[in-house]
Design a protein around this nucleic acid. Structure first.
Lengths: 177, 177
DNA sequence: GGAGGATACATCGGTATCGATGTATAGAGG
DNA sequence: CCTCTATACATCGATACCGATGTATCCTCC
């Protein structure tokens, strides 16, 4: 996830680690903060895998900046991860939002639509947080007000997202018939 | 998170690991699956910390079941974690839903309301995923349809949750004036 | 001129989690 | 009879992440 965000931000422009951190914090930080000690090792991993290159730029301010640039391999890898996200990236909202944030970098509208369809399929299958046997329970069937809250909120999210997904898939299909 | 779920389920009734796993999978598994190799070490951790006790029940089916029971310490610890969740548990929806799923185990309505108020405060502060300088951007200001989607969905969730939070806090306050 | 904060990177220990794999038994189905 | 699946637990190595801490510079404000 973090790696996807790094690759995604660097796709637009070369950045140094600190700036990257600020952007990632703005994107997902209010929900799930990222520690510096997570970011820098992640950058190293990606560098080691040759997905990004580091150019030391000394003197400008304080400690010497390491300006990070996406390599050709890195750009391909980003597209691959966007086009073929793991199932986790589809189901977990945190991860899914990160995919969405960079999905525009896939240049093929039908590939974008395919990713949205996977999320659509996930949201369309009947699922709940609570079951009676195998049957998903509805909010109204629960005594516990807090568990009812979970279902109420999840349902609202699901409705809004389904509407958005269907509309966006339609317009992507219309754009490239 | 996982630990909270384990403690929460055991609060109701003693269970063995496998049953625990099925319940956790039902609760959060469609969004974020839990591997067995994560669950069993977690159980061991909790046992080592004396939060739960294990009673081997041989012969019933297949491998001998280890029936897990919450200790007095474990029950207190669950309540402590529910009453004083980490900030992460408030901001991250996955974690927050787990807190909500077991919040009924706090017997004090005003303590329950206090937890809901923390979430309320988090949702009320202006935040976005995208900024222009320091100003949070609205969905309408974005070109990227996918990023617009993120904001659209987040806004719908936020609205539904705010309404539910306010109503529930009111009714908790009314119940214990 | 000195304190404090922002910038910018880094390391280290600890731990949570995952994926793969293993071991056993019971029951269903062919 | 044999295979497959479900039940039930366990280990192991790899890795991702966190929290604490460290280093160094520059700028601002008092």
């Amino acid at each position: 996830m973090l790696e996807l965000a790094i690759l995604g931000f660097l796709y637009d422009a070369p950045l140094h680690g600190y700036e990257l951190r600020k952007r990632i914090t703005a994107l997902t930080g209010h929900v799930k903060p990222v520690a510096e000690s997570t970011l820098y090792p992640a950058i190293k991993r990606l560098e080691k895998a040759d997905l990004l290159a580091r150019a030391t730029q000394p003197g400008s301010v304080a400690a010497p900046r390491h300006v990070l640039t996406l390599t050709e391999t890195g750009r391909n890898e980003l597209c691959r991860r966007l086009a073929e996200p793991a199932q986790r990236d589809i189901t977990d909202e945190n991860r899914w939002f990160t995919v969405l944030a960079f999905l525009r970098h896939l240049d093929d509208p039908s590939a974008q639509a395919a990713v949205l369809r996977r999320r659509l399929a996930f949201l369309e299958e009947p699922a709940s947080f609570f079951y009676s046997g195998d049957r998903p329970l509805r909010a109204e069937e629960l005594d516990d007000p807090f568990r009812r809250g979970i279902l109420t909120i999840a349902r609202a999210t699901s409705r809004a997202e389904l509407a958005w997904l269907r509309a966006t898939i339609d317009s992507l299909d219309a754009g490239s018939p």
